[in-house]
Simulated scan of single mutants.
Amino acid sequence: MNRKTLALVHTSSSLEPVFEQLCKEKKLDVDLVHIADSTLIRDVIADGELTADTLERVLHHLTAAEDTIADYIMVTCSSIGPAVDAAQSRLHKPILRVDQPLAEEAVKLGAKIGVVATLVTTLTPTADLIRRQAEKVGKEISIETELCSGAFDAFLIGDLEKHDLAVKDAIERLAPKVDVIVLAQASMARVASQLEAGAVSIPILSSPSLAVDYLASVL
């Protein structure tokens, strides 16, 4: 049986080892192809949204990913996740938003859903995706959001301690109000494991692990 190829489109090369390690841990036996372009997230932040011009650049990368003879493609940044919808009609290979399995699991686990993000440009697309998933399954939900101001800037300069502390504080503020918490960016995933035992009693979901679990079921 031929090994399959999974192409990952990132807005930060720092996510490459995260997904390499997850695939090993979950025994997802695929060849990985990484395409990283940090100018995408830079421009989304500067513009405050995913503009038509940036969308076209994302679509260019997705087309390039398909040209690598990938069997499956995943976009690992929630801020550019909406590009997946636009890509469906252009690509012949299946494509996944990294936060799609996350949204499905969040809606399954609770009616009051908390979303924590370090970028405002991630809060809106993540919340919209969760709402669409709830509508799809006919479930009424409410969403509470927490923006970790300054955390993303700290992440960019390598101050992970400041970044992680801001995310942990946001999780602990939000936890009493909701049934489940969603960490909206893949770069936040490791923070959940840093919480002290008993600090938060509700599920905390992050996209990388759930996305790789899903891919393991279809590849």
Rank of each mutant, 00 (worst) to 15 (best):
R3L: 13
L6G: 05
L8T: 06
S12M: 04
S12P: 04
S13K: 13
S13L: 04
F19V: 04
F19Y: 15
E20P: 00
E20S: 13
C23Y: 08
L28D: 02
D31E: 15
S38L: 02
R42D: 15
I45H: 05
E49C: 12
T54W: 00
A64Y: 10
A70Q: 09
Y72I: 11
T76Q: 06
C77A: 13
S78M: 01
S78E: 07
S79H: 01
A83Y: 05
A83M: 05
A83K: 05
V84I: 11
D85R: 11
S89E: 14
S89L: 11
L91M: 07
L91G: 07
K93M: 11
K93H: 10
R97Q: 13
A103N: 09
G110D: 05
A111K: 15
K112S: 14
V116N: 03
T124R: 12
D128N: 15
D128A: 15
R132L: 12
R132N: 13
Q133G: 00
E140L: 11
I141V: 11
I141S: 00
S149D: 13
G150K: 08
D153Y: 00
A154V: 06
A154P: 06
I157Y: 03
I157N: 11
E161V: 14
K162P: 00
H163W: 01
D164A: 07
A166I: 02
A166F: 04
V167I: 15
E172D: 00
L174H: 01
A175G: 09
P176I: 08
V178G: 04
V180S: 00
I181M: 06
I181E: 04
L183K: 03
L183Q: 02
A184L: 04
A184P: 05
Q185L: 03
M188D: 04
R190M: 08
A192Y: 01
E196W: 00
A197H: 12
A197E: 15
A197Y: 10
A199P: 03
S201V: 10
I202S: 04
I204L: 10
P208N: 03
L210K: 09
A211T: 07
V212C: 02
D213C: 02
Y214S: 01
V218T: 14
